[in-house]
Design a binder for these strands. Sequence first.
DNA 1: TCTGGGGTCCTAGGACCC
DNA 2: TCTGGGGTCCTAGGACCC
Length: 424
Amino acid sequence: MYALADCNNFYASCERVFQPHLEKVPIVVLSNNDGCVVARSHEVKDLGVKMGVPIFMIKDLVKQHGIKVFSSNYVLYGDISSRVMSTISSYVQNYEVYSIDEVFLDFTGFDTNFNLVDYCKEIRYVVRRNTRIPISIGIAPTKTLAKAANKLVKKRFKDTGVCYLKDQDDVKEMLRDFDVGDLWGVGRQYEALLKKHGFETALKLMNAPDEWIRKNLSVVGLRLVNELRGVPCIDLDEVPAKKKGICVSRSFGNMISDLSILEESLSTHANRASEKLREQGSNCGSISVFLHTNRFRSDLPQYFPSKEIELPLATNDASNIISAAQKALELIYKPGYNYKKCGIFLNDITPADDLQLNLFVQDDTDKKNKLNKSVDSLNKKYGKDSLKYAIQGTKKEWKLRQENLSLSYTTRLSDVPCVDLNKS
DNA sequence: TCTGGGGTCCTAGGACCC
DNA sequence: TCTGGGGTCCTAGGACCC
């Protein structure tokens, strides 16, 4: 048995933790740069606001219903997520943190000793008590079915918050009118294809012929169908795998044409990317830099260049990666365009302790390692970018738009809420 | 005026080897 | 007129996830 626990309207719920007066108020949280709606409280969902709509398209609705709008505050969400995960993980030996707001639990053997529904109700209660975050839990014999069960909670088991598919009879019963497009692993393309061929529900897909699935949805689709049949094909990944590629990119608050400002922004991304590389103990063998103009402005000239640079020695050194990024940027930069976004990819990732030397290249890795280690520990102690490279600049003319950012209630001392005991 | 930022896996096809 | 039978590796593109 597996369970999937997920946080309801996670980002929106996080904003409510320290502003409880927003409990019944409709709220949305926006993507970076205050662009699109990425989280909605249930009041907003009821108003018909879809996931991912640009906020400017619903500004009338916002005004009319007094929707509270938040910029995304990933520091807050990340911290609350780790509190939720640590509470849940105390109930089970093996678990997989699948995303910022979801965790798979391995309940193998639990069903003989526990009433799983009661057990999960207790988990829900304690998570809510410890963190104030509401969660839903789906339980079933495979991860795909647990995902589906979790989805069913919101439709049919709102009051208990738990849905348990004990055996294939439960599964068949529940999947009879489960939209095939709501399954984990069925996106827009597959949904259209499946419905065109008469597989409108999860139950119909479960009974589809293997050859047809293999041919049209590849082995990934076949795994999905087998999981629906109760045959586990997707393992629990307890240790997150090392990234095979690392990307850091951002849109700019405003369009930018000036090379020196692009350099500041790109080197900040390059620096961050090198930090991610060091965090997982890897080197990269090549980098690639890209620029984007604003694709929604059809009235302006468009330009989407990118450039890959191979490094002489695999590295995770910030200065090496920043200077390679700068070189690439100079090769693709053209004046006269209004750029909206830039970013860097790190590729050819290898373990840092497994460095292939080059007869013709001086290896100063040890020296660089010492420097990076010092910089990383200073930034850990004093806060992000306390110590940074001069090319990153200080003015941040390229910074994100974040007009409705909440405080970092749990991670910055000056933002910690105060309680006046005399008043209460 | 205003439209996010990350990732993974699989397949087909081409280039190459003997 | 007739032109084999194995492989590997890489890349681009397309599907998916949050």
